[in-house]
Design a protein around this nucleic acid. Structure first.
Length: 284
DNA sequence: AAGCTCAACAACCGCCCGATG
DNA sequence: CCATCGGGCGGTTGTTGAGCT
């Protein structure tokens, strides 16, 4: 037996919202707020709509801080980078784009960006500098759990499994997160003053299909094995980090170093590490 | 002008998860 | 610990309008 419906479908209006309904909902919310309960809101506001429908209408259209209109190239870049990094987590992606909703971003991706990317019209070289770096994102600033993922990985048209120094020109839309750590503390080894990612702590299978990747200049790094047992984020000097591996499977050829502060700035995480996490990063 | 196709986007559906009793 | 509920989310469908034949 399925779940009980959230409202009586037979007695609620569906389809496009009228200007009157919009005004009623907007007025009610501006005067009373949601009252912490969307389900009972339409009855209180005098609307013959499902609570979920009211919520969606408000969040996606009526909210005063919504940005309507076309997306900028910077927004395109960011969406593509984030999509490559984390997949279709539209709400997370939208949270990085002020004034945009998850529905907006999702629609925009499905109707325009996906095609644009597949056609290779997003040029790797022109794109934002956060690409071709390692994406470090913090799930929750109060939770010492960090996700590492690779993005800006080449599109399948030039994807070349087995080639140790492939050349690429576009972005992958398919790469899953490279690795997801469990507890941050468990992964830490003071010997490296950085992070040790143990195979047992992230789903290694998630990138078995991605044996190699690189940048358009052939000065590439590669992930060459499905047998990665450990890798580490290692400080090579005071604030420059690089990825190396425990058993050679995650290979740093060259150009795979990045300025940690710059990376954090690019990703918008500067200053957002929790007190628990920051010491382990050896920076910040 | 009519019919068709397709892009854009609004809206709905149903599942998942956290909060609560 | 379990059941229930509401909110949040991603996937999908429906509607509309522009452009083309």
């Amino acid at each position: 037996m399925g779940r009980a419906p959230c409202c009586d479908k037979a007695n609620v209006k569906r389809g496009p919202w009228s200007a009157e309904e919009d005004a009623t909902l907007k007025n009610y919310l501006q005067k009373h707020g949601t009252g912490g309960n969307w389900i009972s809101l339409p009855r209180k506001a005098g609307l013959k709509r499902c609570g979920k429908s009211c919520r969606l209408r408000w969040l996606n259209y009526l909210r005063p801080d919504i940005k309507h209109g076309g997306f900028t190239e910077e927004e395109d870049d960011l969406i593509c980078s984030l999509y490559s990094s984390m997949g279709s987590r539209w709400s997370v992606i939208a949270s990085r784009l002020p004034g945009r909703t998850d529905n907006d971003v999702k629609n925009y991706w499905n109707t325009k960006l996906k095609k644009k990317m597949l056609e290779g019209k997003l040029d790797a070289k022109k794109s934002s500098k956060i690409r071709n770096k390692i994406d470090i994102s913090i799930n929750n600033c109060n939770d010492p759990v960090v996700q590492f993922s690779a993005f800006s990985v080449p599109e399948s048209e030039t994807y070349n499994p087995g080639n140790s120094s492939p050349c690429f020109s576009a972005y992958s839309t398919t790469l899953p997160p490279l690795m997801e750590m469990g507890s941050f503390q468990q992964c830490c080894d003071p010997q490296f003053q950085g992070l040790i990612l143990n195979q047992t702590q992230f789903p290694i299978s998630s990138f078995m299909e991605v044996p190699s990747f690189g940048t358009s200049g052939c000065d590439s790094y590669s992930v060459s094995s499905s047998h990665q047992e450990a890798s580490s984020l290692v400080p090579s000097d005071s604030n420059r980090y690089s990825i190396s591996s425990g058993n050679g499977s995650l290979v740093k050829d060259n150009g795979f170093e990045f300025l940690y502060d710059e990376l954090l700035n690019d990703l918008g995480f500067q200053g957002k590490f929790s007190p628990e996490v920051a010491p382990f990063l050896g920076n910040n």
